[in-house]
């Protein structure tokens, strides 16, 4: 479970669990997992990253697959962990974890072969391709394929769905003005689609875009793609108060 989902949007976690269970998986959430270490990794603190990665490797020992509802956390485990270790034993364990780690959408479609979901969502949605999922893990068609099976849902693509939203982890607070310019362009691109809902596969990006859209007074609702696919699209959207759809 990613730190952001745990703290800010548990519904994404439950949606992921539901999708996995419906696809026949037995899902456990190891209680001693914390963060995957990205904040330290991207700030240049390799020693801390290594310590946290070792903890994550321990926590997920013995599972057939480790699935995260996030491309950036999934990519951290599957692409960056092995490079952290020089010690051959730890490196081998990291490589083993990497080979079992997946982003949710690609696990459902590429590994489990899921082709459709039983969900309804009456609305016009647009989908943002989060950077790590797209460029590190090749997540592009998988969410779209599943969304195509959602009843009532119409997808309107943005002009540039693959351009970064300006979140970038600590980037958005280290360089707030640049980040703001980037997310401002993104929100214009979203608005131009006429969609009433924005979906993506990473909560960091979603919080960034939701925060900008709401500051601008936009009525576009923002949700994680897993929520819609799991038939949980009737809950309050990100940044909306309970009781409001």
């Amino acid at each position: 479970m990613t730190c952001l989902v745990d703290l800010f949007r548990p519904a994404i976690g439950f949606a992921a669990v539901k999708l996995l269970e419906e696809a026949g998986c037995t899902v456990e959430v190891p209680p001693l997992q914390v963060c995957c270490g990205q904040p330290a990794y991207n700030s240049g603190d390799r020693a801390t990253t290594r310590a946290i990665a070792a903890q994550v490797i321990d926590a997920f020992e013995g599972y057939d697959a480790v699935v995260a509802p996030s491309g950036s956390c999934g990519g951290m485990l599957s692409h960056h962990y092995p490079g952290l270790f020089d010690d051959p034993v730890q490196k081998a364990r990291a490589e083993n974890l990497a080979s079992r780690s997946y982003e949710l959408m690609s696990f459902l479609v590429d590994v489990l072969g899921v082709t459709k979901v039983a969900a309804q969502y009456d609305g016009r949605v647009t989908y943002h391709d989060s950077c790590s999922g797209l460029r590190e893990l090749g997540v592009k068609q998988q969410p779209r394929r599943l969304l195509a099976s959602v009843g009532g849902l119409k997808l309107s693509e943005m002009e540039s769905p693959e351009v970064c939203c300006g979140f970038g982890g600590t980037f958005c607070v280290k360089y707030p003005e640049i980040s703001n310019a980037m997310v401002g362009e993104k929100s214009a691109d979203i608005a131009a689609t006429g969609a009433d809902t924005l979906l993506a596969g990473d909560l960091g990006c979603l919080m960034n875009m939701a925060g900008k859209l709401q500051r601008e007074g936009s009525a576009v609702r923002v949700r994680h793609v897993a929520e819609v696919l799991a038939g949980m699209g009737d809950q309050a959207a990100i940044g909306e108060p309970e009781g409001k759809r």
């Binding site: 439950f14 959430v29 607070v173 925060g211 900008k212």
Partner: peptide, 20 residues
């Protein structure tokens, strides 16, 4: 750095994912 340009979404009531 965040709220200068963006709203910050509040988590819904009910506790963290792990607690739930």
């Amino acid at each position: 750095g965040w709220t200068r340009f963006r709203d910050f979404p509040a988590p819904p009531p009910g506790g963290t994912f792990h607690a739930q």
